[in-house]
């Protein structure tokens, strides 16, 4: 699936929820259920420090696509990280660089991607794009 299609799928899933409680509960479940990063990659070099919560992000290139693994110390942040990984994982660097990220707004979590929230997610997306840029130049 393309990045756009995955985002549309997530929006579709979230449309089933009636209110913020259900959305948050789902994100919390996502945050709890996913072992997202190997401990060997949960190191300071992979750490993105937000003012409020921390995010660890590791990337690997497999053939011509990138696989990301990540974690966070806050469960809501971790749940949203899980959604971001679902969107960006196993995509080509160029597609990641060109991607328009619209699903977060659409599912009513806009405030979590505001720079003032300082939970590390904005920096994480920037870092994802930087990895994509680095891998793209490596591939070409």
């Amino acid at each position: 699936m393309t990045i756009k299609e995955i985002q549309e799928e997530i929006i579709d899933e979230f449309s089933m929820f009636d209110d913020w409680m259900e959305r948050y509960e789902y994100i919390i479940e996502l945050g709890k259920s996913l072992p997202m990063i190997n401990d060997e990659f949960k190191i300071d070099e992979n750490l993105i420090v937000g003012c409020q919560s921390k995010v660890w992000l590791h990337s690997e290139i497999k053939e011509d696509t990138i696989t990301f693994t990540a974690d966070s110390d806050a469960i809501l942040t971790k749940g949203i990280v899980a959604l971001l990984l679902r969107v960006f994982n196993n995509q080509k660097p160029k597609d990641i660089l060109d991607a328009d990220l619209f699903f977060v707004d659409e599912i009513g979590l806009k405030e979590h991607l505001s720079p003032t929230r300082a939970n590390g997610l904005v920096s994480m997306i920037k870092q994802i794009k930087l990895y994509a840029l680095a891998f793209q130049s490596k591939l070409s």
């Binding site: 948050y24 003012c51 409020q52 919560s53 806050a74 469960i75």
Partner: peptide
């Protein structure tokens, strides 16, 4: 061991303004 950010985000949805973090 609940992260303060998670508590702050949820009670914000309930109209309660507190500070979280360091």
């Amino acid at each position: 061991d609940i992260h303060p950010f998670d508590i702050g985000s949820i009670i914000d949805k309930l109209g309660i303004a507190v500070r979280t973090g360091h």
